[in-house]
Design a protein around this nucleic acid. Sequence first.
DNA 1: TACCGATATATACAAGGATACATAACGTTA
DNA 2: TAACGTTATGTATCCTTGTATATATCGGTA
Lengths: 112, 112
Amino acid sequence: MKKIKFKCWVEYEGEKFYGPGPNELIKQIKKEGSLAKAAGQMNMSYKKAWSLVQRLNNNSEDPWVILKKGGQHGGGAEVTPNAIKAVQEYDKLQQKINELLKQQEDLLKVLK
Amino acid sequence: MKKIKFKCWVEYEGEKFYGPGPNELIKQIKKEGSLAKAAGQMNMSYKKAWSLVQRLNNNSEDPWVILKKGGQHGGGAEVTPNAIKAVQEYDKLQQKINELLKQQEDLLKVLK
DNA sequence: TACCGATATATACAAGGATACATAACGTTA
DNA sequence: TAACGTTATGTATCCTTGTATATATCGGTA
């Protein structure tokens, strides 16, 4: 059985900025309150997760995630309202594309 | 300036089957009548182009490209009507997604 | 039968990204 | 000041993908 898949993402200055990976990561950070735990939850290396957060924060007016090291619990990660809004809009966009794809199965009819 | 990008493709048994690369390759083969020339036109190695054609032909009821070796001109590549139809449908689908994205700029408004 | 131009196929190499591992830095708490 | 858990960062390695190169194969033509 053949299936149509899609992926959408945001580019900034010709480079990947935001996509499925960061979107899931933000959700996990919000749930866990820790970058390391969030990365672990989705089988992503801490280094990659940290790099993603840097990319988001360094290429936006407002930060996405506030990282704190040291302190009572060793530190932690906090998601800004700005980032939460972006996650909502990204999910909404994905859903709309999914609905469109359901109505556009002509391609699959050709591929037997 | 941030831009929304997308990509859609067809999977078969969990593996990539058809996407932007094969779509462009089919067009080039149709124009050139040769797999080697088509690959050259789009800076794709012959091996990769040949592998793509094998994947398409081996996972479909009807062939996409008929390859002939030897003969008057050394051989050649011919695109089947089946494949031409698929290219048309794929282009149509991409266009519809593009139109959808134009109307869904809410995500970009959040990403400053 | 020798030549030609295209397909067919194997092998080794290069490049990029992802991963694993190790270690430093930090700030609150006791 | 020692301990703790998290963030911060470098390095080496693997792995996948693509590329380069070379050679074999085929069948019509002269």
